Simulated scan of single mutants.
Amino acid sequence: MNQNHDIKILLEKFVLNQCTADEIEQVVSYFRTNKMTADFPTVEEIKSLIGEMPKMETFVAEGIFANIMNQSEEKEIISIAPKKSNWRRYAAIAASVVVLLSIGISYQKGFFTNEQQTVIDKNSNQITLQLENGEIQVISENTTSTVKDENGNVIGNHNRDKIVYDNETPIENLVYNTIKIPYGKRFQLQLSDGTIVHLNAGTTLKYPVKFLASQNRQVFLEGEAYFDVAKDKKHPFVINADELNVRVLGTHFNVSNYPEDDQTDVVLVEGSVGMYGANEIFDATKNTILKPGFKGSFDRKNKSIDTKAVSTDYYTSWIRGGLSFRNMAFKNICKKLERKYNVKIVNQNNKFETEVFNASFEDEPLTKILSYFNDIHSFDYYQKDNYIIIK
């Protein structure tokens, strides 16, 4: 497999957010050092695949490419070669590739793949529900509808910003649905057992359409959710958050498990929960048991769990549209802002990227949040559409 073929595959994986850390570094390295070769598609060739595409503005291209460069695991901003013409060309190619993948093009000329596929952009404004057979349905917050399985059977009801699943559905096997919440939105689910789940922006939850009497109630979370778990002593409720399991019988708590964070946080409002490794068997005498008003943090690197008393309101204010930062680095705050306001932030000022902040806001416009940080650290930023560049 030649280098160009490899980088084409990596570019597709990168834009779909499927790259490992090593693969991201390969993409960054390619843009930094590799010269364009004859068989790599030109900007014109890429644009020709989608017909009359609006002209890509330099601002947008620079924002996308700068974001790619900032994905490197190195904390400092990567320097760019002084050849300005190459920089423009690389930026335009990166931007064009993003456009291609975000609207689901059937690739021609063998670029990336020869198979036609529909790609839903993770930064789009659509809430999507994936059925067991892979079928994807778009959930509109302005309508009501019935939720059906692949055979057309009604399994729940959708009413604007909430889906309620039916416990009387005659399902005998474990069948999963997966809901994805885009940046800028929140959503609610009522699972078949009566458990209420509030889902934050940028969150994916996989869950059974109906919990079976012969098994524990288990769901799989990436992102952030607040759970109000229906009590059932015979069937513990287990949230799998990658390498961490959270086990409850009936309680109120928040789980934050975004992939870019160094730890998974569980904040208990009411009841009791146990925290333990995903490959472990729950043992109440050995595992970490949280009490109300405490936060348990699972360190993904060393696999340890620390607990401390907290004000739970800080960690659940997002349900009401608020924002809270507690001992949070600015780079992580930027990710929170991206999710809440559905924007792309490119921070080119690394002087305070790792500086820690404490702040709380109600449901405020983004300009007010940026003004707060601008008062502390005077910086220049400009915005166009949903791109924000911090100088």
Rank of each mutant, 00 (worst) to 15 (best):
P41V: 05
N254L: 00
I24M: 10
F111S: 15
K340D: 02
N173I: 08
M328A: 14
N125T: 06
E135N: 09
P236F: 03
E243S: 15
R326W: 10
S85R: 08
T307M: 14
N177C: 05
Y314G: 02
N142Q: 13
D380E: 14
F227M: 15
F282W: 00
A81R: 10
E355N: 14
C334A: 07
E74C: 03
T37F: 00
W87P: 01
N386K: 14
G156A: 08
D363K: 13
T203W: 01
T264I: 13
L323P: 10
D232E: 12
A225K: 04
K308M: 14
A359D: 07
G277F: 00
G277M: 04
G202H: 13
L221I: 10
I155Q: 04
Y381A: 06
A309T: 12
K210Y: 07
K162I: 05
A94Y: 00
Q218V: 13
E222Q: 11
V97T: 13
T169N: 13
T367N: 13
V248G: 01
V343D: 03
D193Q: 08
F361P: 11
Q137C: 00
V246L: 01
A329K: 15
G184F: 09
D149T: 10
G202Y: 07
I289N: 06
M53G: 03
K384H: 05
G293Q: 01
Y387P: 01
V154K: 15
I105E: 14
G63Y: 04
N287P: 00
R247D: 04
V147Q: 03
M328G: 05
D262E: 12
G63P: 11
Y90K: 12
A241Q: 01
Y207W: 06
F325Q: 06
N159E: 00
T143K: 11
V267K: 02
M1C: 09
A284T: 05
D385M: 03
F227I: 08
V175D: 00
I196P: 02
T37D: 04
T58S: 13
K13R: 13
D306L: 14
E44T: 14
N240T: 05
R339H: 09
L323T: 08
I78W: 01
T316P: 04
L244C: 06
F220G: 09
F65E: 03
G250R: 05
L370R: 04
E44C: 12
D306Y: 05
V273T: 11
S311A: 14
I127F: 06
E73W: 09
S304M: 09
Y381N: 04
Q116M: 10
E141W: 00
V28Y: 08
K35Q: 05
Y226W: 14
N142V: 06
D306F: 06
E280K: 05
V197W: 03
T42A: 07
N4V: 13
N257D: 12
K336T: 09
T37Q: 06
E74K: 09
